[in-house]
Structure formats: C-alpha cells, structure tokens
Design a protein around this nucleic acid. Structure first.
Lengths: 168, 168
DNA sequence: GGTCATGGCGTTATCTTATTACATCGCCGG
DNA sequence: CCGGCGATGTAATAAGATAACGCCATGACC
C-alpha cells in the first residue's frame, strides 16, 4: 500500500477522515460505475485515478506523471497520463480545475456534475460543492440567453476557513 | 486604422453593432478609468487593449502577440504582452477566461467584476454576463463554508443561439 | 539643473502544460 | 484464424507562461 503524505499522524489525516479508506472507496465506486457503463477502467487508468485521489487536492498532470513514473520504475510519457485523465474526466470520476490546470477526484461520481469548487489560494485545496441555487441560477440565465449549457464551470477563488485562522 | 475581420459587411458587423465604435468606446472608458486611478495606460498597454477588443472574442496571449508584432513590424517578446495583459486584468479592463487560456475585453470596466461568461464551444464566442442571482448564490454558499471569496469565476460552456440554429 | 528612485520595457532563456502523428499491442466478434 | 477497434507506447513539438537581468524614461525631491 502507498503512504499518504498527509497521513503522517495516522489514518485520520488533517482532512479529518480516514484517507486510505476514502481512496479505496473512490476506487470501488469507480469500478462499479465503469462496470455499469461498460467502460474499461484499465489498470493504468485505475492507477492514475488512485494517484489523483492520493493527494486529495488539485494536482497537475505532470505531477501525476512523476508519481506514475516513480511507481512504475520507468519514465512515462505525458500522453499516457493525459489520456488516462481524459477518460476519467469524461466519466466524471475526476474534475479538471481550469484556473489551476489541475485535476482532482470527484466527490460524487455518477451524480450530476456541475463542477463547482471553492479553491483556496493559500493552501491550494479545492472543495467540491454542488449548490442547487448556483445550478438553478446558471440554468435560468442561460435560458434567458437561449444558451444551451453543456458544462457549467464554477471556480470560486479565495481563502478557506483554516487559512483565514492562520493569518488573521 | 485597422480593419476588423468581422466587419467585412460594413461597420455593423455580425455582432449587431458598430464594432469600430465599440472599440473606440472601450479605449475611451479605459483612458478615463486609468486617469481617475492614476494608473498609467501606456501606449503599449493601450495597443494591447485595442488588440484584445479587436476580435471581440476570447483571444490567446500568443495570438495577441502575433498581432502586436505585425503592427510594430518587429518581433515582440511574449513577456511584453503578458505584462500588458496583467496590467489590464488587474484594472478590470480585460478578463481572462480560464477554460480557454484566453483574454477578452471587459464589457463593464469599473463596475463589479464577477467574471461570468457564456462560452460557446462552437464559434468560440464568449458573452459576459453579470447575474446577481449567481453572484448571490456564490456569496451564500461561500459564507456557509466560511470561505472568503476573492475572485469568483463562472464559465458556462455550451452552445450559443446562433450556433444552435446553424446545426439543429 | 542634478540626482535618485520607481516603474515600464527589452532580451534571453527556460519552464510548464498539452497535443499531434504514427507505430504497436491485445482483446473480442465473426 | 483474422480483421477491427480501442488502449498504450514513442517521439517530437506546439502552446502557454515565467524567471533573471538590465536599460531607460519619468517624476519627485533637493
């Protein structure tokens, strides 16, 4: 098993949860979802998904690439990671955070994917939210403009509670 | 004066407005705004602002760079453009569209900058909106999370009315 | 007018992020 | 068995962005 860098204090990391379990959970859900859809969650894709979840915060494609190379013991090409990420994003298992050029595990794969995030500029964490009010408001204004929505993106930059406390 | 590529049919372009006038207007407002703030809208920055407005749709930094080089008659360094864009974005004269890595002139500089866009994936156009419902919803959920907002980003990808009609 | 600090700009190099083009492999249906 | 298709490997390169350094114009101050 791989060590979670955040779990130095034990299974209950600073995220306030059992991170190893949380990763395992995500992988199990991914397995189920892909099986259901007939999508092929290959070893490589599964590996990348695990690496995305591993940090539990937005992570760049090249950072994931490094992780993967290290694990495999040999250099891997960027394309390998990008292709895997493309698959994962397509199936809603991973979100891309545009304003960071980074990827993060989806908290609720299978559900509606509005892709709303609170992105902390201090600690780099991104919390996925799914606010019906925002979703509704976007739907309304899009309709008013005759605009057909395919992928709403909401990325709220700012400072999370923890970081506000640290620097008052 | 430079020819607007969209204005082949005359001053009233397919945007349904007098585009030359619209650019001139943006520049005038920028002049006023910068004067008011004591910010220096130098020749270069003004030039870049004009180039951003010229296409009237999101435009990448390197595309702007090419335009600039052509106008100046000599190669310009990327940094030149990036610095100008940074200034323009800081002063709210230009918005960066994260999901496109592109820049577009702000429709209402000086006003509140929520930075909301309807981005058409077919024609590449981006319409700036400023929906109070979305703004309010973001404020509410951020408050619920104790999250301090610095820059809300809303980029709704989809298909605009025109493009829907063309491909029914 | 001289001088100094500041901010804008030029030059070069480099870094990160992402994609294109083409070859190969392996699984599955016929 | 074999044809086809989707997944992966390899190499090269495009696109986007920044770092480090220094010169020069502007304006404040003496």
């Amino acid at each position: 098993m791989t060590v979670d860098p955040h779990s130095t204090a034990g299974p209950a990391s600073r995220h306030g949860h059992d991170h190893a379990h949380c990763i395992a959970d995500a992988l199990t859900r991914a397995d189920a979802l892909c099986a259901e859809r007939g999508a092929r969650l290959t070893a490589l894709r599964r590996q990348v998904l695990e690496l995305v979840w591993n940090s539990h915060k937005p992570r760049g494609a090249y950072a994931i690439l490094e992780d993967l190379s290290q694990r495999e013991g040999k250099a891997t090409a960027p394309l390998t990671v990008y292709r895997a990420l493309e698959f994962l994003v397509e199936h809603g298992l991973v979100h891309r955070i545009e304003s960071l050029n980074a990827y993060i595990g989806c908290a609720a794969p299978g559900a509606v994917h509005s892709g709303q995030f609170l992105v902390c500029e201090t600690c780099g964490n991104a919390v996925e939210i799914d606010d019906p009010r925002i979703r509704a408001a976007i739907g309304t204004i899009a309709a008013e403009h005759g605009f057909q929505v395919s992928r709403p993106t909401v990325e709220v930059r700012g400072t999370c509670t923890d970081c506000q406390e640290k620097t008052p």
